[in-house]
Structures are given as structure tokens and as C-alpha cells.
Amino acid sequence: MNISAPVLTAAAARVIDAVKVYGVDDTEVRALDGVSVDFPAARFTAIMGPSGSGKSTLMHCAAGLDSLTSGGAYIGDTELSGLDDRRLTLLRRDRIGFVFQAFNLLPTLTVAENITLPMDLAGARPDPEWLETLIDVVGLRDRLHHRPSELSGGQQQRVAVARAFAGQPDVVFADEPTGNLDSRSGEEVLNLLGRTVREMGRTVVMVTHDPVAAAHADEVIFLADGRLVDRMQNPTADSVLDRMKSLDVQEARKP
């Protein structure tokens, strides 16, 4: 069932000395303050950190949704800061998949249409074999012609996952994909993400604040105050929780 196994050592996405500053002078906020991190291919990476640590900003900048103030963001070997809006859009369409916290689907399109949307926008034909496999993996074969409003929240997120992987992108970014789900549906979605990495060799980067969710990843990186503070291989919910607690303590001790 292993479709393709990318070279394990290559980074699917990375940022180098990433700095993101919002506002000017007095109101200046350094959301990212010199972060350098690789997101290796065929790995499931979780980004964690307290509120305001810059984890969402890191993901947005790495995925070409936002631009860095300084430093570089790469998808494969492509430097994002050199791209105009159109090229960025095409890059997102062709090489990146997205799963957002909520509102992932267009209400006017059916499940099947939602899944193939990025390819339809590109005017490209999806690989039918891959698509069939994907539909079976997310388990939505009997729902293909339904509208999103006829699905449960968990089902909607699974459609979003299918949409994100449909074009076989270099990397899939997931922003709190389970934030709006009950724990059982959330578990399903996380398992799904995990399977695509381990069984199909895809690359996933997930932002979350939930240690249980982070435990599904191969590696967790911790951010605080816009800086990379730690990395943890093969995390468990408990180890992640402990690390987060110590980060909170450090936060509290700050002047």
C-alpha cells in the first residue's frame, strides 16, 4: 500500500532565520524571532506552544499564506519570498495541501467536487488510482455526492483531509484540525493524518495546542515567544504535557 517513499533525509519544507514583525515602533510585536526549522519529508511534525508563541504564524509563513519580515521559507527548493501572489497561489495549489480548523469546504460543492477542487482550479486531471485509494482511506465512498451541510463535523474534516492530499502535494499543513471536533472524531482525523504519513509516505505539519493530538506526530517542535525552544522525537501525550507545563512556568517567571 506504500505508494511512493520520498528520500527520508530531504526537507519537504523549512524556514531559516524566520522573523515576522507585526506593527511598528511601540506596537511592534515579534511573532517570529529567528526561527530555523526543517520539516522532513515523509514525517508527521507537530508545532506546539502556548497562545501567542507564534505557532500559527510559523505555519502560515511556511505555507506561503503569509510573508516573512526577514529570513527565508522554502517548499522543497523553492524560496517563497521571491514569488509574487500569482506564483504563490499556484505553488499552494500544486504543492501544498491545507486542513483548517473549521470551514474547510465550499457549501455549494459536493464532497467529490470539494476533494478535487485544487486540481479543478488547476485544470488538471487527478490521478484516479490515488483518488480511489484516498476515498477508501478516509471512508467517504457513500458520501461523495452529498453536500457538506449533510455531513457531521468529523466527516467534514475527513473530506478536508482527502482534499488536502488529493493532489499528492509535497506537504500538508493542518491548522488545529481537531479544534472543533469531539474527541472521537478528532481521534479519527488524527489517525488518518498519521496513516497518510506512515503508510503512504506523505508529509504533514500540524499546528495544535492539544498534547493528545501532538502525540500522534513523529516529532513535536515547541515554540515560545517566537523562538524555537525544544524538539521532541516520538512524543507521548504525557511527555508533551509535561514539556508544555514547564514552558508555562518559564512564561510565568518572565519579568
Partner: peptide, 16 residues
Amino acid sequence: TRELGLLRAVGQTRAQ
């Protein structure tokens, strides 16, 4: 607004 944002995020160009 959100739908349009989603469309743009998953690859709809401005022209589209």
C-alpha cells in the same frame, strides 16, 4: 469572505 479565503488558500488565483 471565508469561502473566498478558502478558495484562495487552496489555489484559486486572483484572476480566477
